[in-house]
Structure formats: C-alpha cells, structure tokens
C-alpha cells in the first residue's frame, strides 16, 4: 500500500514538473485531479467545522441555542436567492452586509497600524548616539537620514493629483529609486526560499521514491 501511494505521489510530482516543458495530458490530468480533491477536502473540513460544530451544535442541539446564529442562516438563504432569477436581487443584501461590515472593520484598524503607527515610528531622533560614550554614531545617523529621505520621497511618489515635475517630480523620482532597490532586494531575498521548495521535492523524489538518498 505504502509503495503504491509513494509511486502515485511521485507520478503526480513528475506530472506537475512536466508543465515546465509544455502543457501535456499528464499535467492536465494532475490539474483536474487536484481541483476535484482539494475542493472536496475543503468542503468536508468546512462542513465539520462550521456547518456542524458551529451552526448545528450551536444553534440547533445546544441546551441554550444561540438564536442569533439563525439570523446568519437566514442571510445565507437570502444569498441563495441568486439561483432564482426573479428574486435574485435579494442576494445583494447579505453581500452588502459582508462588504459593509468588513469595510468598517478594517477601516480604522488599518489606519492605526499602517498609517499612524508607521508615522509614529518615523518620528525619531535623527542623530543617533552611542549608548555608552554618548558620541555621535555616524553610521546609524546616516541610516536614519536615509530612512527619512526614503519615506518622504516614497510617499511623494504616491501622490496622484499633483503633476510629477519640478522639485516634486525630482523627489518622486528619488522615491522610485528606493522602490527599485526594495524590489530588487526582496526578489533576491526570495530566491533562497524558492530553492528550498525545489530541494523539498528533490528530497522526496530521490529519497522517498527512488530510495537512493546519500
């Protein structure tokens, strides 16, 4: 059994890799299988976690049923009215609830964590001093200055309603330099993790499947 399973896994692995050469029937089969199995897996997990544990046990069989959950179920039913063309527009109500509630939920949270806190972090002493001697630490001071320049010019780049020319344009341009350096660095930084993924599969193919590990 174990043998067959590993063979299947190995064939599927090779099937996906074959896509690198070109699209082919084996890849198509793997893809179709993957879609079916994963959709089912997710549906099953979702069923037991939410439909059963959360809703059925919470609102139906519980000693003190949580009747508010029923409102959720009614909203869910409204959502299904999409299937009936004539009253399909009712399904927009639960949609509106989701969109409205999440807009409200994220709005302030993101404002605090992304805008205010980050500005707070930017406000710092430009001149860094050595903790022991109190002398000016030139390296760090240079660093904080570069950070300041980067934040300001980067933000200037994101202005939409002002033409990028003159001093403003030049600042925005500096901003794009910072963006490029960042993109390059993040890209370079990622190469390693992507290689590890490949190593993981090579490990499987050579070790578990062919059993010819070093």
């Amino acid at each position: 059994m174990e043998m067959i399973s590993i063979w299947i896994a190995a064939i599927l692995t090779l099937g996906i890799f074959s896509f690198l050469y070109k699209d082919n029937p084996l890849y198509k089969a793997c893809e179709a299988l993957f879609v079916g199995v994963s959709a089912a897996y997710w549906a099953i997990v979702f069923y037991f976690d939410n439909i059963y544990k959360k809703f059925y046990e919470g609102a139906v069989t519980a000693e003190e049923p949580d009747y508010f959950l029923w409102i959720g179920a009614i909203l869910g039913l409204l959502f299904l009215t999409r299937l009936v063309p004539k009253i399909g527009w009712v399904s927009r109500w639960p949609m509106a609830l989701i969109v409205g509630a999440t807009a409200g939920l994220w709005m302030v949270g993101y404002f605090v964590s992304n805008a205010m806190n980050q500005i707070g972090n930017t406000i710092s002493n430009i001149i860094a001093r050595d903790e022991l001697t109190g002398a000016i630490a030139w390296g760090e001071t240079f660093g904080t200055m570069v950070i300041l320049v980067g934040v300001v010019s980067g933000l200037v780049y994101f202005f939409f309603s002002k033409e990028h020319k003159g001093v403003f344009g030049a600042t925005a341009k500096v901003g794009t330099w910072f963006l490029m350096v960042t993109f390059g660095a993040s890209f370079g930084y990622t190469v390693m993790s992507r290689m590890s993924l490949l190593i993981g599969r090579v490990d499987f193919l050579l070790g578990d499947w062919l059993g010819i590990l070093r």
Binding site: Q118, N121, T182, A185, S186, Y189, T190, V191, M192, S193, R194, S196
Partner: peptide, 11 residues
C-alpha cells in the same frame, strides 16, 4: 517567515 515575507516585516 518564508524568505519572501521577511523583508516586509523588518519595520
């Protein structure tokens, strides 16, 4: 974190 994400979390 995965290598990709690391850069984003230095702040």
């Amino acid at each position: 974190l995965t290598g990709v994400m690391t850069a984003q979390y230095y702040p």
